[in-house]
Amino acid sequence: MAKIITKNLNLWYGGFHALKDINSSFEANRITAIIGPSGCGKSTLLRVFNRMNDLIDGVRTDGEVLIEDTNILNSQTDLVVLRKKVGMVFQRPNPFPLSIYENIVFAEKIHGEGVTRDKLDEIVETSLKGVLLWEELKDKLNEPALKLSLEEKQRLCIARLIAVKPDVLLMDEPCSSLDPQATARVEELMRELKNKYTIIIVTHNMQQAARVSDDTGFMLLGELIEFGKTEEIFTAPGDRRTEDYITGRYG
């Protein structure tokens, strides 16, 4: 089932045409990787889905992005609702300078008036279990989140995100600041999470895309060159440019 569909999506930063006629379809409960060299527009595409590009002055989009049949580029879209549904994990682990507990309940606290302590405790427990951190952290929930290791921080950020109960997880190079072992464990977590969520990951690490994703899109200079099953993209690319990129002729 297609969760997100883009139709003739174009985006400009002022005069710069950053996304050109993107037509794609992202499936629910699968991991879709978007790969491509730096500056190809992959992060920009990711940030269309939760409208984070709105924060930048002079951005203009046209075309359609349908999430469950609703065009989110519509000016009436409630960004608060959209962003609760489509969450984002960033390149650098970025917990707030609060305790582990407070990080996870942050969104719940500002959205829900008078949520009971029991309810919050429950959210913390489920979210941390969801990212396989509960056993390690259950006795130090009140310690500052900034004391954790990079990997734990990134897991905590994912926990903070799934506490909001999103449908879609957008991951913008989530492992780029982690060491190989931590990367492997976070990838393992992603495979676990795809049972519940639709995951789109942007990465410039091709091996990671090959390891973790079900579908892959290859972007170059703002165009989506090729989109399909990961196996096919990596073993029998249909486009010369995809093949050149994957075999490392440029990148």
């Binding site: 962003r83 969450g87 970025n94």
Partner: peptide, 10 residues
């Protein structure tokens, strides 16, 4: 980044 995360959480 703090602002960005907070906004991205809705």
């Amino acid at each position: 980044s703090f602002r960005e995360v907070s906004l991205s959480l809705g």
